[in-house]
């Protein structure tokens, strides 16, 4: 039976671990460093080293390894497609041939590297989201973006939008699940027919969902206004962001680790450079 209950997209899990207490700016910077590192060093062998990070993260944040790995589930299909395409369309030294399909040694390297890179990308991002409350995340982002704000971009409004969007994800899943079930109980069939028929069968779910979201948005705007929110006005924070020594330590440690992996990749592994 279709149900959205089990989807976890790296939702925030409240906690009080070392990672939870890091400044959101620190965590955002770290995540970006990691993503950059991933793109600079993605030899299959590098991933053995990258694996150390989720393990360490799991220890420090008290999140189980299964929970971390599960966040990669929604992209498994995407990863599979990427692997498949790279496997078959990378020219090089041929090792296997099935009809018109050719598998090359380079293809395998590229495919595995690409797949793992995508998977790690999602997992690293999820590690950030699981340990940073949406409010903190948007505050951190707002502060990091403040140089752009001086150019006239509404950074604080954008941050508030992000907070609310993240807050409403669980609610939206619940609503979608309810509407889906209601239409199934009225005989709606989402599983049979061709692509177009299937796409059309989702109209009875999407229309009510949009109506509901608009209604919600309007009510929420009124409620926010009644609590003295006015866009652009200066706001303070319950927990002001404080960059502590541990944040600097975290950034430096991670930077050293990433630099080491990249250096190792360039100097020792060298060899084939599939991604340019």
């Amino acid at each position: 039976m279709r149900s959205l209950n089990n989807i976890s997209l790296g939702q925030f899990i409240p906690g009080d671990s070392l990672i939870h207490r890091l400044d959101p700016r620190c965590k955002i910077v770290c995540t970006f460093m990691l993503l950059a590192g991933l793109f600079m060093a993605s030899e299959p062998l590098d991933f053995v080293l990258w694996c150390a990070l989720p393990c360490l993260f799991s220890r420090l944040s008290g999140t189980s390894m299964t929970t971390i790995l599960k966040t990669g589930r929604p992209v498994v299909f995407l990863v599979a497609v990427t692997v498949f395409i790279n496997l078959l369309w990378t020219p090089g030294h041929e090792i296997l041939r099935i009809g018109p399909l050719r598998v090359t040694w380079e293809g395998i390297t590229v495919a595995v590297g690409m797949g793992l890179r995508l998977f790690f990308l999602v997992i690293f991002a999820a590690m950030l989201m699981m340990t940073t409350s949406p409010m903190d995340f948007s505050a951190g982002l707002e502060r990091l973006m403040s140089p752009i704000g001086r150019l006239g971009l509404p950074t604080s409004e954008m941050a508030m939008m992000m907070t609310i969007a993240l807050r409403f994800i669980p609610t939206l899943f619940e609503e979608t699940d309810r509407i889906l079930k209601a239409q199934i109980s009225r005989g709606a069939d989402f599983d049979s027919g061709g692509l177009i028929r299937r796409a059309r069968s989702f109209v009875p779910v999407l229309v009510p969902l949009f109506v509901l979201v608009f209604l919600r948005a309007e009510n929420l705007a009124t409620a926010m206004e009644s609590r003295c929110y006015s866009p652009g006005a200066p706001r303070t924070r319950l927990h002001p962001l404080r960059w502590a020594a541990r944040d600097s330590v975290a950034v430096i440690c991670l930077f050293s680790f990433i630099a080491a992996v990249v250096a190792l990749d360039r100097l020792v592994l060298g060899g084939v450079r599939p991604f340019r």
Binding site: F12, P14, S133, M135, T163, R167, L220, A223
Partner: peptide, 10 residues
């Protein structure tokens, strides 16, 4: 429709 943040105290 009134709860803005994901954490109670926030």
């Amino acid at each position: 429709d009134q709860i803005v943040a994901s954490i109670v105290e926030e």
